[in-house]
Nucleic acid binder design. Structure first.
Lengths: 127, 127
DNA sequence: CTTTTGTTATATCTATGCTATAACACAAGT
DNA sequence: ACTTGTGTTATAGCATAGATATAACAAAAG
């Protein structure tokens, strides 16, 4: 999977990496059971320090996107536990987006269309 | 309008303040033309430094939620210009939420229902 | 003339992000 | 046995951002 860092972004590098991996899973480019490059290898590929990658991997593990073991490194393994916890996170994130949308006169229909298009976009990326 | 800071949050204080004001506008608790407390007064009420409030106000001005003038302080004034710019921001924010939702097996219908409920929640807050 | 407004400028402290180097325990391959 | 490659942890240094504290300015209102 192709991952590119934006060193001029205000977003932290480990957050960028985490987000791109999550999007890779959503697009099914990163499939269940697949291994990610080791922290050192990924760091080398991205031109980033090992600890930055390690921080991203640890975050992905914590949020239930990968499992880490010494044999195979970081393996894609999405956990469907703590669903209510993730719903809460999504809830509060979505709340700010909707608040901005309402202020800027973006209709409910527009937002639902946007969500539908995004689901379609992620699905169409699947082979 | 009641605003409370969470000093234990990992979210910056000026971001918290900005977000709560945007939600206040979305709920129509803060109405068009209404004045916000001055930076010094708001800072005093929240137990926060003046510059922290100033930063939030400047951000709200930049994003077209308030207008600032010397007579009346910060006045709620939502600009509907730069709509495409705001759509882009919402687009990229939404993309990460949807990616997480897909990974965690949350359906399109569930997400659209969530958006609908939020629109309803903000509207019901209006008097 | 005083007060209050937003605004700007410094300075200081703390926390975070990123890097660098090093070491550890464990598993796999040779 | 030995080496290599995992994740993991620890420590240190550097740069930036967040928050605070003082201070001052120009403009508007009373």
């Amino acid at each position: 999977m192709v991952i590119k860092m934006d060193f001029n972004s205000d977003e932290a590098l480990y957050i960028q990496l985490r987000n791109q991996i999550i999007m890779g899973i959503a697009k099914d480019i990163l499939k269940e059971g697949e291994s990610l490059p080791s922290v050192r290898q990924m760091a080398n590929e991205l031109g980033v320090n090992m600890h930055t990658v390690n921080k991203a991997y640890a975050l992905l593990k914590q949020d239930g996107y990968v499992k880490l073991d010494r044999r195979n490194g970081a393996v894609i393994s999405v956990s469907l536990e703590n669903r209510s916890f993730h719903m809460e996170t999504i809830h509060s994130d979505m709340q700010m987006i909707v608040a901005q949308a309402i202020c800027k006169d973006i209709s409910l229909t527009e937002m639902q269309d946007l969500v539908r298009e995004m689901y379609a976009a992620f699905s169409s990326a699947k082979i």
